[in-house]
Design a protein around this nucleic acid. Sequence first.
DNA 1: TATAAAAATTAACATTTGTTAATTAAATTC
DNA 2: GAATTTAATTAACAAATGTTAATTTTTATA
Lengths: 187, 187
Amino acid sequence: MPVSLSKAFPKLKGIVEKYQDFWYEETLPAKYTLLQEGDVSNTLYFIVKGCIRLSNNYNGKEITIQFFFENEFVSSFESYLKNTPSDFSIETIEECQLLVIKKENWKTIMDQNPLFREMFFDFTSDRFINYIHHFLSYIQEKPEERYQNLIKNKSHILQRVPLQYIASYLGITTVSLSRIRARKQPK
Amino acid sequence: MPVSLSKAFPKLKGIVEKYQDFWYEETLPAKYTLLQEGDVSNTLYFIVKGCIRLSNNYNGKEITIQFFFENEFVSSFESYLKNTPSDFSIETIEECQLLVIKKENWKTIMDQNPLFREMFFDFTSDRFINYIHHFLSYIQEKPEERYQNLIKNKSHILQRVPLQYIASYLGITTVSLSRIRARKQPK
DNA sequence: TATAAAAATTAACATTTGTTAATTAAATTC
DNA sequence: GAATTTAATTAACAAATGTTAATTTTTATA
């Protein structure tokens, strides 16, 4: 049991302990693909340490949709919940220490444990709301404003994530991001 | 009980009949605001007849996020579920015939009726997946491609919805939409 | 540590959208 | 049905991003 878990996520800690055999730990190197776009997801990850991105490839262009950090669940949810081919790939950015659970075991816990059900529902609805806000920022703001807001509100992303992923997250090219950075931080 | 409901949504029909007192019907004119951005949503609508849009206002710019038609539930879900001020307004486009249920009654049914719970969960996850795809189209495609795809895949929207709303749905100005239309459908 | 590979920046030009304003078309209402 | 309002289109110019390519910087690794 990772030490950090008990501090960060006491609820989950209890559940992992109770259903010990259902969970396992995994340490994976940077740039490791956890799920390939097009495959059906049957694994749910919880990040103990590290940083992960969820991306989509369209005509050879890879776009990062979301970043995940410590104490977050990661999965391609629509694929995980509906058994459909995933629209997204999931890849580690840094070396990651993960708690892993397979879908069958997850289902068992979901059926048996109202606390976990509640926690998971909270988590997915937060994720949904996250999506909504990210989406709104896309349609409300210009790339440059999105970058400024990233600095203001999500500087942890800027500190840990390579600029190429940030550019695609902002919906622009690395070239354009460089220009914005040069423009707004003179000297 | 609206006649069309039994055909289109037999599941819901049973539930509406069983919990008759919880639901009421409403007929509202075009351009009627069902929910004002900033207010907390406590109403869930089901469209029997008509067409509704969900929008967001940012610095005076109104952006349409989604359209809803017959046999769909409509609400500002994050507000409805979390009791937070809504990021969106909800407004009729045409005259609408609606089935309405207030949150307290909705909660009662959710608690008592697994069938409704399942139906509602299916509905919200479909809505989530919808969002994801709409979002992906935003970051993958140019406005012009989005318009072409709208013609190809969602022509019912084009037929029923004024172009100003479609422009904002595509993330562009009406001027730009006019240009695209002039460009791609010569003569 | 030197070498190679990958990432980030800069430059020049093309393309597209935004903006403002004028014009035409369509819908509303008195 | 005439008058008024709203919606859609067109035009001209400004502004921002995309594209391609070259250059510099950083990171990885032999």
